[in-house]
Amino acid sequence: MNIFRLAGDMTHMFSVLVLLLKIHTIKSCAGVSVKTQELYAIVFATRYLDIFTSFVSIYNTFMKLVFLGSSFSIVWYMRYHKAVHRTYDREQDTFRHWFLVLSCLLLALLIHEKFTFLEVLWTFSLYLEAVAILPQLVLLQRTRNIDNLTGQYIFLLGGYRGLYILNWIYRYFTEPHFVHWITWITGLVQTLLYADFFYYYFLSWKNNKKLN
């Protein structure tokens, strides 16, 4: 464990907790894409299958449960909680995300480190996470104004993988033969997808203007 990875995990945890808190307290999911939340639930479900078979540390298991629990409860709130579901923007959140799932699955079957069930699903979860934010970014461009919490959620979510890139650089130089091209490339693609969001987010913060 290094400071970059710890900061990345904390940033990631805060992003999901900010979103869960927003939805739970103001009972609204305006501006939030349930498709991105469903993709993230699939990402965690397929990445953390080894939670039962391999124990890394208390921290690791605890964080996996936090991410699994928060992503599935956010989907539950947005799909089945009456008050929250009413604020869901069905007309605007139209990204056909099942195509993302299918293409990532095919890609994982083609490009992976080891052809085992767990390893292919783990690779699939990396590919899917890289593109999971797309429905949310598309929804963002359609909805005029987004509230601060949703903006903070996306900012933290984009930031966490950027911190992970610093973690990979650190591990590459400190651990012999620590090389994981698939993880690095997907992590880079994922972070780059946030580039224009970061740009507008920074502008709105600098000019102290509403993000739009």
């Binding site: 990875r5 995990d9 990631h12 990445r47 080894d50 391999s54 890394v56 690791n60 964080m63 996996k64 991410f67 480190e113 080891k114 783990w122 992970y164 973690n167 993880t183």
Partner: peptide, 10 residues
Amino acid sequence: IEHEFEHDEL
């Protein structure tokens, strides 16, 4: 045996 690449990251 080849070291089982354990995914120690989240």
